[in-house]
Design a protein around this nucleic acid. Structure first.
Lengths: 208, 208
DNA sequence: CTTTTTTTCTATAGACCTATAGAATTCTTC
DNA sequence: GAAGAATTCTATAGGTCTATAGAAAAAAAG
């Protein structure tokens, strides 16, 4: 219970357990999933799961964290860079929608089930999650200052709109994996930039 | 079990039960809520709940239906009217956000928990729910035909965007009941119309 | 006030679920 | 290949949950 938990194989298997939990929680919800379901998904027996998690709640916490960890990191990098408002927005959307494709199960769990975490864990995640919204809001504020957006825009609503559209279109992506991600990213940037100012000029994205 | 189910008081109490179920499901999710929780919320004992529902699942079905019934109706009326594209869009947003305020609990349950319904009930609801998206899509198609939007717009994505933003902003409304609903409706219409075409002219709303 | 009907209650069967303890197995290392 | 460590298994205690049955209480009807 001390040294072995650091072993490479243990960490690898634990990650597998987190992924299984993510898949099951995403499909049936936290309370709708049993530890047996999760164990079955990764091919072990119910009791064995407790070798990796000390409780079902801990599993939920790990899934949520997995869902947003490098997501929030990305955002910090983007916000700190010195690109134009439009590039930053597009980079944000790219990051958001890409995460949606790769980690959609864990992200869905984070979005839908995190409120079932104990208060303390939830606060820890909130630092990451609302850091995300916060940074997004700041990007919009900068857009207003720089004149890229008209002045009357409410940045709090704008940030929320980005999240809403990305989640909604993220669902479309998950449902139909053949969709062209980049095309959607452009549509989305387009919509938001057009939506918040009168005219727009097209701008190159940074990556992906 | 035959005539009394038609009595006035019975129907009234049953509606109360549906509202209680909505509140509890909205807070804790379907699987996270027990029949005891629901009964307690309406001030009766757990077993008595089965006088109004034959199962917990039936309660969920009723809550979901309650959440979207007149919502889908509204949409039909709007789509069938012969207002301009912009008016129709604004009316849709008005209806969506107003429902969010009044019936947000049941609507949240419809959005988040309907997948736990048995296949058959879910299909029945889907007729209503995706009828909604369908009509919304048609409104956009008409907007394109009429020249109010530029031609390249993908109406399927547009409809999804409306839903995404309304849900996201609906959450803001629920969280802060002091917000000015009409102001938000305007912001939202603004964003969407600007988002999907190059320039916009401001237009009067129809009601509310 | 008595009878009938409607509504609520109590009590419980039967199922399932989490978490733990200790045995069995597999993997490492010497 | 024997000793020790890591991983998985079986079995189960103790709890909660849904749904039902039948008694009790409240309301309506006669």
């Amino acid at each position: 219970m001390s040294a072995h938990t650091e072993s490479h194989k243990y960490q690898q298997q634990r990650l597998q357990a987190i992924r299984s939990a993510a898949a099951v929680f995403a499909e049936k919800g936290f309370h709708g999933s049993s530890t047996r379901d999760i164990a079955e998904h990764m091919g072990i027996k119910q009791g064995s799961l407790y070798y990796y998690f000390k409780s079902k709640e801990e599993a939920l916490g790990e899934v949520c964290l997995f869902g947003i960890e490098d997501y929030a990191d990305h955002m910090k990098v983007i916000a700190a860079s010195d690109q134009s408002f439009e590039s930053k927005l597009m980079a944000t959307i790219t990051s958001h929608l890409s995460s949606y494709r790769e980690r959609n199960e864990a992200l869905k769990v984070y979005n839908d089930e995190r409120l079932y975490l104990p208060e303390e864990k939830r606060r820890n995640l909130k630092v990451l999650g609302s850091g995300y919204r916060q940074l997004l809001e700041e990007i919009f504020e900068e857009g207003v200052r720089s004149g890229a957006l008209r002045g009357s825009i409410d940045c709090h609503f704008a940030a929320q709109a980005v999240i809403g559209i990305c989640n909604a279109w993220g669902d479309l992506i998950v449902r139909d994996p053949d969709l062209d991600l980049f095309d959607i990213i452009q549509k989305c940037t387009d919509l938001l930039i057009n939506g918040f100012r009168e005219r727009r000029t097209i701008e190159r994205p940074i990556d992906q």
